[in-house]
Amino acid sequence: MSQRRFSPRLGSNLRIVSSYAILTLGALAVLFPLYMTIVSSLLTAKQFGDTPPDFFPPTPQWSAYSNAFFSGHMWHYLFNSLQQTVEIVMGASITTVLAAWAFATYSFPFKRILWTIVLSTLLIPFEVTIITNFQTVNSLHLYGTMWALSVPFMVSAFGIFLLRQAFLGIPREMREAATLDGQGSMGFLWRVALPLVRPQLAAFMVISALGAWNSYLWPLLLTTNSTTNRTIQIGLKALNAGTIQGFNVVLAGSVIAAVPMILIMIFFNKQLVRSLTGGALK
């Protein structure tokens, strides 16, 4: 009985019908804009202005995609974004796992105050740090390199928090037993602890990839004047600004930019939900 959320016996048909009505309305609000984007990317300029609008492309024009990919350089930007995302996910995972492990299992001087400092940086949004960060990448001679896009994000206070919690969940006795067996702390981390916290690590990697792929402000700042290192998001902005003529090229660009994360959402749904809602639940 307790498995049931609502007993169908008590539910009226009205309730079921109105539930579906609400959900379908919500789904339309989400899907209709996405659907029209895909349809419109396949229309000619004349068809785009049709009234009634075309809800299905009469003569699909795939040229918008090749224009976006090649004339609009989205193909090039796609690889830039991929590189940026991989660098950030790998870099952030390494620094985050090591720091979380130290905060979870070592005792060292100033641990409490350092932990408070790490957590307090969660309150600082990236937007209020750009002035100096922009100068920092210049003085580190990173400006104009792909590293400038990724290095500042190779750490995550949220990730350290998430993984520290996960590491704390590993029984102390397991660690002590491993120590008696002569296994060092790093060996235990690599062979035992990391496999145990795989769900949390995966959740962190997915949210980290999402943040990297969708990031806008930082790549915008760094690639306004240089086009070689543009990410897909900034490439899309450039298409919007009319670098290549045609509304359909812009829409094709948005489809290209959106697909990778939609695939991640479908394949890593559980990890994504866990990481997005991680802060809300105790």
Partner: peptide, 19 residues
């Protein structure tokens, strides 16, 4: 379907609604 918008970037969402 509902979680889709959580993974859309601001540039993608802006482009879609701009159209």
């Amino acid at each position: 379907i509902f979680s889709t918008t959580a993974v859309s970037s601001v540039a993608v969402a802006a482009t879609i609604f701009g159209t």
